[in-house]
Deep mutational scan, measured.
Amino acid sequence: QVALSRTQVCGILREELFQGDAFHQSDTHIFIIMGASGDLAKKKIYPTIWWLFRDGLLPENTFIVGYARSRLTVADIRKQSEPFFKATPEEKLKLEDFFARNSYVAGQYDDAASYQRLNSHMNALHLGSQANRLFYLALPPTVYEAVTKNIHESCMSQIGWNRIIVEKPFGRDLQSSDRLSNHISSLFREDQIYRIDHYLGKEMVQNLMVLRFANRIFGPIWNRDNIACVILTFKEPFGTEGRGGYFDEFGIIRDVMQNHLLQMLCLVAMEKPASTNSDDVRDEKVKVLKCISEVQANNVVLGQYVGNPDGEGEATKGYLDDPTVPRGSTTATFAAVVLYVENERWDGVPFILRCGKALNERKAEVRLQFHDVAGDIFHQQCKRNELVIRVQPNEAVYTKMMTKKPGMFFNPEESELDLTYGNRYKNVKLPDAYERLILDVFCGSQMHFVRSDELREAWRIFTPLLHQIELEKPKPIPYIYGSRGPTEADELMKRVGFQYEGTYKWVNPHKL
Rank of each mutant, 00 (worst) to 15 (best):
D279P: 08
E386K: 01
V268L: 12
V268I: 12
L437V: 07
D279F: 07
G356N: 00
M493S: 14
A315S: 14
V295N: 08
K272M: 09
M257A: 11
M401R: 05
W506P: 05
L359T: 12
V295A: 15
Y421W: 08
E457Q: 12
D310H: 15
M408C: 05
P486V: 07
F410T: 13
Q304R: 08
T331S: 10
E294T: 11
H379T: 14
V496K: 11
V288N: 07
R345W: 07
L262N: 07
S275A: 06
R254C: 06
V337E: 07
S445K: 13
E457G: 08
E314C: 11
A332W: 01
R390G: 05
K405P: 07
L339Q: 06
P406Y: 01
I480E: 12
D432L: 07
Q369R: 02
D376W: 07
D347N: 13
G422P: 09
S329F: 04
A336G: 09
P431H: 12
M447H: 02
A297W: 14
D376A: 10
P474I: 11
Y398F: 05
V391I: 11
E314P: 10
L419V: 08
L320V: 10
I477L: 14
L439D: 02
V391N: 04
H371T: 11
R362S: 09
K400M: 01
Q381F: 09
F442D: 05
E435L: 08
L267A: 06
Y481E: 02
R384K: 11
P323F: 05
K405W: 09
E344D: 08
E454T: 02
I477A: 11
V286I: 05
D279I: 12
E414C: 11
G348C: 05
E365P: 02
V337D: 06
G313E: 11
V341K: 00
N277Y: 13
F410D: 14
C355E: 01
P474S: 13
K272V: 07
L492N: 00
V373M: 09
L267V: 07
K494D: 12
L289S: 07
T420Q: 09
A336I: 08
L437K: 01
E416N: 04
P412R: 07
E454F: 06
A297Q: 14
M408T: 05
F409C: 14
T487H: 12
Q296R: 14
A335C: 12
D418H: 01
W459L: 04
R367Q: 05
E294W: 08
V428W: 07
T333F: 02
N308Q: 13
D376M: 08
L368H: 02
P406S: 07
E314G: 09
Q304L: 00
T331Q: 14
L261T: 05
Q446K: 00
K404A: 03
T399D: 00
Y434F: 04
H467N: 13
R367F: 04
A433R: 01
S275R: 07
T487P: 14
V441L: 05
F409K: 13
K272R: 12
K404S: 00
D372K: 06
D283F: 01
T463W: 02
G502N: 14
E491C: 10
E491W: 12
M493T: 12
N299D: 11
F449V: 03
E314T: 11
R424W: 00
Q392H: 07
D280S: 11
G307L: 06
E344I: 06
E365C: 06
V337W: 06
H448A: 08
L437T: 01
P273R: 03
G502C: 11
R254K: 06
K400N: 03
G307H: 08
H371G: 09
V349R: 01
P406M: 06
N259H: 01
D376S: 09
Q369I: 06
I377Q: 07
S278C: 09
N423T: 14
I438A: 06
E284R: 07
Y425W: 08
V295G: 15
G485S: 04
L465R: 06
P464L: 08
P478G: 11
S275L: 05
L471V: 15
S275K: 04
E491V: 15
V306C: 13
K400S: 00
D310K: 13
A396R: 02
N259L: 00
E344M: 07
S445H: 11
T403Y: 05
F442M: 07
F409Y: 14
H467W: 10
D280P: 09
L289I: 14
Y340G: 08
L262H: 06
F449G: 05
E413H: 10
E312Q: 12
A269T: 12
W459F: 03
V306F: 13
M408R: 08
V300Q: 11
V337T: 14
F498H: 12
I438K: 00
D283L: 04
A332L: 02
S452A: 12
C266W: 00
D280I: 12
K494Q: 13
R424M: 05
Q304I: 01
E361K: 05
V338S: 11
L339A: 14
E416L: 00
E457M: 11
E386Q: 05
V301D: 00
F370R: 04
T333H: 01
T463V: 05
E414Y: 09
G313D: 14
D310W: 11
Q392R: 00
T324W: 07
D372P: 12
F498W: 12
P431M: 06
L417V: 01
I480N: 11
M493L: 12
Y340P: 00
K290R: 13
D347P: 07
A335T: 08
A458L: 04
L289P: 04
K400F: 01
R424C: 04
P273T: 01
H467D: 11
F442P: 00
V507L: 14
E416C: 06
N423F: 10
D322E: 09
K473L: 10
Y481N: 12
H260Q: 00
F410G: 13
Q499A: 14
E501A: 09
N259E: 03
N308E: 10
N385H: 03
K494L: 12
V337Q: 14
F334L: 07
K404Q: 02
V391K: 04
R362I: 07
G356S: 04
E365L: 03
D347K: 15
L439F: 11
E312W: 11
K290P: 05
E395S: 11
A458Y: 02
C355T: 11
R460T: 08
K383I: 13
E491A: 12
K272G: 07
E488H: 08
D283V: 00
M493D: 06
E294H: 09
F498T: 08
L261V: 11
E414N: 07
N343A: 07
I389M: 09
S278N: 14
K400Q: 04
L466Q: 05
R354S: 03
